[in-house]
């Protein structure tokens, strides 16, 4: 069953989605199988061999009414910013110059703009650990590549229209690649397997290629701890 909490992208709606997901997750509902929260809706998998659609619908409605105040207060939850060290340009960001050309800015300005904002994680979807981030400065918005790459390296940081994001694993991809983080965002041996969680924020911290290699080695040996901090605003 899909619970729609709005039709647009907003922090408030997204907060409500995750508050509802938390509420259901903590409610020991015997019929609940899986929850998939997204920008503005929550997909509720239930055991339809055991309960009817109408029962679930009324139970969910009642639960939401009863907890309306805590769902609405979701935006008061603590926030964390995950810092992702990122090497911009060169082999790690082959499209950085075309993004700069498209924006009529210098490469340095693009890096400064891109790394100067804390991006909200609205949802994880598309592929394991892939974060949908919001809030990018429209000055560096760039269309997707006309022909997607057949392989994008894991950790690649890209721009597609007004969105920015990170590919957690190697995959085909059509985003303009401006940099790459050595941080491993998805690891199926960990719980939870995804480092980033919706409702948190991401900050890209520029590093050079040398530092990239150091962090990459740390990540490979399991010594890397991702820095978190309070949001800037």
């Amino acid at each position: 069953m899909s619970v729609q909490l709005g039709s647009e992208i907003s922090d408030e709606i997204n907060d409500r989605v995750y508050a509802l997901a938390d509420l259901l997750g903590e409610s020991s509902l015997p019929w609940l199988r899986e929850l998939v929260p997204t920008y503005r809706s929550l997909l509720v998998y239930y055991d339809a061999f055991e309960v009817d659609y109408d029962e679930i619908k009324s139970e969910l409605t009642e639960l939401m009414d009863r907890h309306e105040s805590s769902i609405s207060a979701a935006s008061d939850r603590p926030r964390f910013v995950y810092e992702l060290p990122t090497a911009y340009g060169g082999e790690h960001g082959p499209d950085l110059e075309s993004v700069a050309d498209n924006a009529g800015l210098s490469v340095e300005e693009v890096i400064r703009i891109h790394s100067g904002i804390d991006y909200r994680v609205y949802m994880i979807g598309f592929s394991p650990g892939f974060p949908y981030l919001g809030g990018m400065d429209p000055r560096i918005a760039t269309p997707r590549l006309a022909t997607p790459r057949t392989r994008v390296a894991a950790g690649s940081v890209g721009i597609a229209e007004s969105q920015t994001g990170v590919y957690p694993s190697a995959s085909p991809g059509g985003w303009q690649l401006i940099g790459r983080t050595p941080v491993k965002l998805f690891d199926h041996t960990k719980h939870p397997p995804s480092v980033l969680q919706p409702g948190h924020y991401v900050r890209f911290v520029p590093i050079d290629t040398e530092r990239f290699l150091e962090i990459e080695n740390q990540a490979a040996s399991g010594d890397l701890e991702i820095q978190t901090s309070e949001p800037a605003s």
Binding site: A21, R33, E34, L35, V36, P37, L43, Y45, I124, G125, F126, S127, P128, G129, F130, P168, F186, H188, P192, P193, S194
Partner: peptide
């Protein structure tokens, strides 16, 4: 693989 779709799996 139920249970991990919220992580994009």
């Amino acid at each position: 693989r139920a249970g991990f779709q919220r992580f994009g799996v």
